[in-house]
Every structure is written in structure tokens, then in C-alpha cells.
Write a protein that binds this DNA or RNA. Structure first.
Length: 239
DNA sequence: AAGCCGGGGGG
DNA sequence: CCCCCAGGCTT
């Protein structure tokens, strides 16, 4: 993929997102400045958790603790109770720990680089890239299960997951650009969630269909990741 | 590299 | 009813 074609795909995806992006509570219009605190909360909550499940918790948390200082001042037990039902309670502990670190050691400011964010408890490679891009416009591409699937299809990546992962990072880096990185990663995830689904992708509505290798190969119907780590596409069933 | 952690929604 | 998810941490 040449830089020019990567740029073209970027623009096409962003245009699609501008017209089709959902109005989620933690999203802001392009002319407003995102609040890193709200972005951080939304990304931690969305780890392995669906948007539908997260939304009411997000509203409740930012209503009760509007700032990172307020959250840092809360008792851990109160945070754990408020977290009840979201699962993965280690997230809640790291969440509270990070609030205290940011409030007391960083004067309430989140790190504004991907590397800095990565140091926070509960913030791994994905979340650091996502917050960096969305809250601070860092040209990072966060790779989650959704993005992994979209890119695996786009470039027809086969073989062991460990091998394809390095390929994914390489491909993702070619898409990294200073032009709206936060919108770009959200658009990529939204594409995976709404169109490029595992079982029944809606290729007709996809802004990337013309360049999609899996579609060209007729293997867009489904995608599986085997227990042994191999990724393969299953051919469209003959009807 | 593998196991573990929760819960809900979609197929 | 099974599968899988806007992952990260520990071993």
C-alpha cells in the first residue's frame, strides 16, 4: 500500500464516519476539545465491554465524579459499588489508582503522549494509543479486536496470529497521520462494529469495499480465529 | 505464550 | 445456548 493509497483510504473512511458516526456521550464535535478524563473513562470501561453496556455507567460516573480530582477523592469501595455489573473488577481498582496518581502526582493532568499514558495502571497498548489519538490528537492507531478483523480482511492476512500481529502494526502505522487521528481510529472501530462484522459483513455500504482484498477473494462472509492462533477466512457458502 | 477476569447481546 | 467482545495483568 502506497502512502497515496493509504491517504485515500483515510479520507474515504473519515467521510463515511462524518456521515454515519454515532452520537456517543463521550464523543465531541470536531471543533470542541475532548476532555481526557472523559475519554479515559470511556476507554477503560469499553475494554471487552459493549457500548450499550458502558453508556449508562459512563453517564453515572461523570455525573457523580465530574473531574479526576473528584474521583481520586472517592473511596475505593464506592467506586467498586458503582462499577457493579460491568465486570472485570481489577479494572475498577486500577481505574481508581490511576485517578489518584493523576490527581496527586500530575496535578490532575493526564499524560499527553502514548508512552506516558502506557505507564498508567490498566492502560495497555490499545488504550494508550486510543486515548493518545482521541484526547491528544497523537497520530497513533489503536489495534483492538475490531480493527484487527477489519485490517485482516482488507489485506487478507493469513497465518498465526503472532505473525499477523506484526503485520497489522506495520499496516496500522501507514495509516497513522496528524490529520484527525482521533476520528480515524473511532471510524475504523465503528466500521468494524457496524459494517465489517464477523458473521455477516455489509460490504455494499462499506467505504473500503473497492480496495478490500478479502472481498476481492470472495472470502468476506466470515472470519474465524482458531484456537491454535491461525486466522482464516471461510469461503462464502454456495447457495 | 497462556490463563484469568464478568457480563450482556447477537446469531 | 454458544460465542465473543472498544484488553490488561500475572505467571
Amino acid at each position: 500500500m502506497t502512502p497515496a493509497s493509504a491517504a485515500r483510504l483515510r479520507r474515504r473512511l473519515l467521510a463515511w464516519y462524518d456521515g454515519n458516526g454515532r452520537d456517543l456521550p463521550w464523543r465531541v464535535s470536531t471543533d470542541a476539545t475532548p476532555d481526557p478524563y472523559r475519554i479515559w473513562i470511556s476507554e477503560i470501561m469499553q475494554q471487552q465491554t459493549t457500548v450499550a453496556a458502558v453508556t449508562p455507567y459512563f453517564e453515572r460516573f461523570v455525573g457523580r465524579w465530574p473531574t479526576v480530582q473528584a474521583l481520586a477523592a472517592a473511596q475505593l469501595d464506592d467506586v467498586l459499588v458503582a462499577w457493579q455489573g460491568l465486570g472485570y473488577y481489577a479494572r475498577a481498582r486500577n481505574f481508581h489508582k490511576t485517578a489518584r496518581i493523576v490527581a496527586t502526582e500530575r496535578d490532575g493532568r493526564f499524560p499527553d503522549t502514548v508512552e506516558g499514558l502506557r505507564e498508567l495502571p490498566g492502560v495497555g497498548a490499545y488504550t494508550a494509543a486510543a486515548i493518545g489519538a482521541i484526547a491528544f490528537e497523537r497520530p497513533a492507531v489503536a489495534i483492538d479486536a475490531n480493527v484487527r478483523l477489519v485490517l485482516a480482511r482488507m489485506f487478507a492476512l493469513y497465518g498465526p496470529l503472532a505473525a499477523t500481529d506484526s503485520r497489522l502494526v506495520e499496516i496500522a502505522e501507514r495509516f497513522a497521520a496528524p490529520d484527525r487521528p482521533g476520528d480515524f481510529i473511532q471510524a475504523l472501530m465503528e466500521l468494524g462494529e457496524t459494517l465489517c462484522s464477523r458473521r455477516a459483513p455489509n460490504c455494499e455500504a462499506c467505504p473500503w469495499r473497492a480496495a478490500c482484498e478479502a472481498r476481492r477473494l470472495g472470502r468476506q462472509e466470515s472470519y474465524r480465529e482458531r484456537a491454535d492462533g491461525a486466522i482464516f477466512f471461510r469461503r462464502r457458502p454456495e447457495s
